[in-house]
Structure formats: structure tokens, C-alpha cells
Write a protein that binds this DNA or RNA. Sequence first.
DNA 1: CTTCATGCAAAAAGTTTGCATCCTC
DNA 2: GAGGATGCAAACTTTTTGCATGAAG
Lengths: 160, 160
Amino acid sequence: MERPFVAHTEQAREVFRTFLRERGQRQTPERFAVLEALYHTGDHVDADALYQHLRDEADASVSRATVYNTLDLLVEAGLATRHQFDGSHARYERAYAYAQHDHLICTDCGHIYEFCDPRLHDTQQMIGQILGFAVARHSLTLYGQCRRDACPNRAESDDA
Amino acid sequence: MERPFVAHTEQAREVFRTFLRERGQRQTPERFAVLEALYHTGDHVDADALYQHLRDEADASVSRATVYNTLDLLVEAGLATRHQFDGSHARYERAYAYAQHDHLICTDCGHIYEFCDPRLHDTQQMIGQILGFAVARHSLTLYGQCRRDACPNRAESDDA
DNA sequence: CTTCATGCAAAAAGTTTGCATCCTC
DNA sequence: GAGGATGCAAACTTTTTGCATGAAG
């Protein structure tokens, strides 16, 4: 049922190893534990969720400071993506071997869906041309109401 | 040089009046002062900037709590838009009579540009159809490097 | 054994909340 | 006059920082 991401964890670890070595930074068990935790949770998690996971479910004990520190490294290494959806705090998502995609969030239940529209790439290029920009990346999030039965506020909406 | 937004302030005030009246909420001078401050600053400002402006430049003395409270009301009234660009905190922008647009931010100098691509509406609709969503709004931000002479990091980029 | 990373706790930054006072309706 | 709104400060949440200890190279 789940996407097979286990294999990618192995490769991500390798990438991280190389990344750290090249930058002359240390390969500590804590850093790999954070990487593992992120790749294990195939979701959009915040730093605290990872901290909790590491603290409770994994045997690794990593401080919050280290979680934040390592997440920054992972983002720099291209192994994680940082999102800041509307009103909330930072959330992270594994990035190795996962194609660039965007998000669709239900304003009722908070559920996050992913999608990909190739036309966005055109938009990105075109706007860059027009405004004289070297556009490196984009962040698109759609907000709306999903139609899941499980969605808490589902019934309330008038389906006009 | 500036866009003529003064006239819109008048109309926004009227909309706010009606909004408050209909909701049985009070029309206090503080609330209108915040509206005025937001519409006066034709930019993407945070709550604190508005607070400072009200405190120093305007004669109105409004507490931070009231600024936050009123900004929420303005967003609900459709008179303001709240943004949460990448790493930073909430920023607000006046919304009355300003067409839906998106943002392009220079990762070097932080400058915010605006643009509009009608194809986004199609994307929004299409993805909504596919995923069974009633998409209400979207948030798109492009990140890249601008080519302004004033951009601090301008020279460093290799123009490959 | 040197130096960088960790952990802890305190600080910082942004936002929310509780309560007495004030002012709109 | 009654009840919502304000201001102040304290609480809260998320993230950063400083410093002593600990471990990777």
C-alpha cells in the first residue's frame, strides 16, 4: 500500500555521507538518525514530530537543536524539502528520488495531497523571462475542500 | 510613480464598515487605523511593521494584540491577504480591488515582485477535478535571482 | 588529541490569551 | 447601561543560541 521508499533511504544515506565528507562535516549517528526518521515517515512532518519519533519509537535520543540543525543540512544536501504552509510552522518532506510536486490542502481536515502539473514549469520559465529572473524553484499550494467521507467538516459545506 | 491606491482605501473602509455592521461587531477607531495603515503601505508587511507605523508615524496608538486581531478581521472581510513566504513569518497585503496575483521573490535581496498567469486558474480547476476538490484559492511563489543593479548578491551568480 | 557536534537550557521571535478598563452601540 | 474591544503583560509555540561535555576524524 505504501510507496516503496526503503530503498531510497539507503541511497539518501549514501548521498548524505558524501555530502558531509565533501564539506568536512562529521558523520554522526544523530544526523543519520534524523535522515532515517524523515525517510521513514513518508509524510509532511514538522521538527517536533521527528523529535518525538526519534525519542519514542526509535531508540536514538536526539535533541531538538540537533533535529533542526540536521534538517537544515538535509535541505542543503537536497535530501529534504522545507514547506511553510499557510498558517502553520515549517514542515519537511524527504526529497531524494521524489519528483518535484505541489500540494493541495483541505482547509477542513488539513489533509495534504500531492499533484504535478507540467505547465507550471512553463509558467516558471515565462515569468522568469518577462521579469528578468533566474527562477530556481517554485512553491504552489492549492487550498480547498476535499470530499473524503472522513473529512470532519464535510457535511457542512453547501455544494452549490 | 506609485499606484493610486488612496481611492481604494476609502472604499475598503466602506466595505469594512458594512462587514462589521453585518457581523454585529464594533467600528472602533483602532480597527480603521489598522486598515488605513495596511492600505497606506502598499507592500507586503508584517504585523509588527504595521504596529510600528501606527505607533510612530500615525498618531493612533494600537496595541499589538489589536493589530493581530484586526488583521484577522480584514482577511475574513476579504480586504487583506495573508502570506507566509518561505522561512519567514506572516505578511499581509491589501486585497481590495487588487487582482489575484502571485509572487516572485529574489533569494538574494528579498525583493518581492508580483505577476499573474491566467493558466494557473486552469491548473487550479483541473487539479480540483482530478482530485475531487473544491479548490478555493492558491498560493504560488517563485524563487530565484533578480537582475537588478541594486541586488546585493547580483555579481556573484555565474550567468551560465 | 583536535575540533566539531551534541545536549541542555535559556533566549529569541512571533503570536495568542486573560483580565481589568474603556468605549461603542 | 451592557457587552464587546482594547491594552498590557504574561503565556505559548517554534526556532535559535551559548557553553560545557562528548565523540568523530
